[in-house]
Nucleic acid binder design. Sequence first.
DNA 1: ATGAAAGCGCTAACAG
DNA 2: CTGTTAGCGCTTTCAT
Lengths: 341, 341
Amino acid sequence: MSRPTIHDVARVAGVSLSTIDRVLNGRSGVRSVTQQRVADAMRELGYERNAAAANLARRRQDRLLFILPAGTNSFMRGLERELTQRADAWQFTSISVRTVPAFDDAALAEALQAVDADKTDGVAVVATDSAVVRAALAELRNRGVAVVTLVFDLPSSRRQHFVGIDNVQAGRTAASLLGRFCRGRPGQIVIVAGSMLVRDHAERRLGFEQVLRAEFPEQQVLPPLEGLDDQDIVAAELEAVLRANPDVTGIYSLGAGTRGVARALAVSGAALPRPSVVVHELTAHSRQALLDGSFDAVIHQDPAREIAAAVSVLQSLVQGRPVEPDAGRISIEVFLRDNLP
Amino acid sequence: MSRPTIHDVARVAGVSLSTIDRVLNGRSGVRSVTQQRVADAMRELGYERNAAAANLARRRQDRLLFILPAGTNSFMRGLERELTQRADAWQFTSISVRTVPAFDDAALAEALQAVDADKTDGVAVVATDSAVVRAALAELRNRGVAVVTLVFDLPSSRRQHFVGIDNVQAGRTAASLLGRFCRGRPGQIVIVAGSMLVRDHAERRLGFEQVLRAEFPEQQVLPPLEGLDDQDIVAAELEAVLRANPDVTGIYSLGAGTRGVARALAVSGAALPRPSVVVHELTAHSRQALLDGSFDAVIHQDPAREIAAAVSVLQSLVQGRPVEPDAGRISIEVFLRDNLP
DNA sequence: ATGAAAGCGCTAACAG
DNA sequence: CTGTTAGCGCTTTCAT
């Protein structure tokens, strides 16, 4: 009737609970004949282990720490919100969050060093790329703590996994969209970069130019505009570029300069057809711009999925379970006005 | 140190475990003074209930049944795979699956009537719209079983929730994409419909035409091509249409005729620029077409999310928890060649 | 109105 | 190598 338990298996196999437990958890000290008997009994009964009961008895808590940059970046705040609001969504896992000044290698390295390895099983960190950070991360690993990078990767560091999107693919996706949006209107494409971090901006730009050059050669990519993610700078510079190049057909904003882009478009709005616009990250502002028609598409990564993947990977790492190579790969979402969540 | 348990709360409040349990579960038989004391103790200790332990002790299993159409529709098979492979992903929930002949109202009604209300707490059904089905569904509700519709809705029936995408929005999304893809190339747009079910095809078409007419009036929408989701019919008819209309700029396939579309394009491939193509559902075939460049975008709904949402909504319903109105809303995903999962 | 005690399905010492 | 026993945190009789 109800699901068989280890008691049933023990009875059928004619052994004790401990023996069942041993084979169930692959512990040593069971003759292979006995193992076989137990395995047969399990198969016969269709036994399925009750993970909740196991965790309860084990009374293990995975203590995970998330280290995020402070500041107003809405994506980072989204991650933090996800973490604090759904703190109880993960059974047998206790999660804490620390924020450190953004783009401050020293501060980040310090935070990594300050991790108490006796009270922390795993760390997810939004990393900046620098020698001190790499060193601190390696040392954390040496102290027996599992480490994954989140959002920004640190390849060839000692981090065990990366959880985030593939930024080259994100750039390629943007180009596929924008190239199609601008087809039949040869002209210039403006890339608005920022300063979130060198690596991921470079990757997005790379992917973007790969696809645009190969598939939409009628578009000329202008030298990227460095807006430092400051909306005033972005607005001013972009406005100037638009004025100087009346044939701009498309704009790709790969950083956080989204609001500046919207402002520049509003000002130079008279010119028609207005350029097609693809930006990153769904925020209140980009959503609004999508709705009023000034942006065409938003490339997004979902904070909820990102956090869920990080927790899951860290749990596996901490518990010594195998982790599939692409467990941390987050899907690149595309939003238009009509499929906004 | 470790999370406080009801033992701690009991000690601090100076009462027994049972009393804690009573207030925790809102059972009667506790003086309000005592309730207050307990509540204070919980707050003081920062008590959080351990849901797994509660479920274990309660030993309740939600018995859910999924009724899906049989046949080769890859989306339906995707749902079934999700259900059977991840059967153990939902703690304290046992899931069974039944398939019934597709588009057979009588068979579906019969399956609904055959549900054993004593052994089933909730049902998720991919419904077809007919009086017998509605009646059978209502009767199932009367027998005390929770019911949600999945993928296809049955509004104004007694189903308690719908889990699936908004098909009008899906159609609008397709039009936003295709309209932009075809901009600057005035011409005709072909809609390839099928026969999956009248309702959702009609809704997709509605949304599609809404947006196309309003925002891309330079495109003329041809009368929809009824391919009955049969690839041979779709291929033949579409080929004829393409031959007759050399100015076809875009194709929207809103049903399951995807393979036929690919074939027709391969045959009439000579003509350039080839029409832009947006189809529904990511399958091995549509993925391939995306990769080889014959399709531009795929509108998708994720079977995994769909199943997860259905299970979660049914659990809430069965356990009498409140369900947010849009708990069943699944997001509409957009895939291009470059953001394929 | 409140408490004691016996589990839920599994794990973890500790004995044999 | 295998079995016994005492819980994990919570619910549920059944007393009081």
